[in-house]
Amino acid sequence: MEWFILAISGLFSGVVGALVGLGGGVILVPAVLFFGTTLALIPDITPQSVVGLSVVMMIFTGLSSTLSYMKTKTVDFKSGFIFFIGSIPGTILGAWVNRGLDLPSFNLYFGILLIILSTLLLVRDRLKPVKWFVENGKKRTFTDDKGTYIYGYPIWFALLLTFGVGFASGLFGIGGGSIIVPAMILLFLFPPHVAVATSMFMVFLSALVNSATHMSLGNIPWLYTIPVIPAAYIGAKIGASLNKKLNSNTLVFALRIVLLLLGVRSIIAALM
Rank of each mutant, 00 (worst) to 15 (best):
V20I: 15
D76I: 03
L160I: 13
T143K: 08
L255T: 14
S54P: 03
A95P: 01
G80Q: 07
H193M: 13
L41Q: 13
F83L: 14
V75I: 09
G218Y: 10
H214M: 10
I88F: 01
V165E: 01
E135I: 09
G17S: 04
L251E: 11
S241T: 14
F12T: 15
V134S: 11
P230T: 10
S105N: 09
L41S: 12
M58P: 00
T119I: 15
L223Q: 15
W96T: 13
A240P: 09
L186V: 12
G94I: 00
L205F: 08
H193R: 14
P154G: 10
V209A: 06
T91R: 00
A232P: 01
M57T: 00
F106W: 03
T91A: 12
F35K: 01
V264R: 08
E135Y: 12
R256W: 10
T66M: 01
L251Q: 14
L260W: 08
G152Y: 06
S65Y: 02
W3I: 06
L11E: 02
I180G: 06
A195T: 10
A231L: 11
Y109L: 12
I5D: 05
K138G: 00
I42T: 03
F253Y: 15
Y233D: 02
T143W: 04
M202W: 10
K138W: 07
M70H: 15
A31W: 05
M57G: 00
G80F: 02
I27H: 07
V165A: 02
I238H: 05
L261Y: 11
P230S: 07
E2P: 06
M70T: 13
V252F: 13
P30W: 04
L208W: 08
L171Q: 07
S266T: 06
L114E: 13
S105T: 15
F35C: 06
L114N: 15
L122I: 09
F83P: 06
L187H: 08
G62T: 03
G137D: 02
G90F: 00
P30Y: 02
I174L: 05
K73N: 15
T119D: 04
S54G: 05
V55L: 06
G111A: 07
A95G: 11
F106R: 02
V165W: 03
T225R: 03
K73D: 13
T148P: 08
L122K: 11
A236K: 00
G235C: 04
I8V: 12
R265A: 13
S68D: 12
I150N: 04
V194Q: 08
L189N: 15
F167V: 05
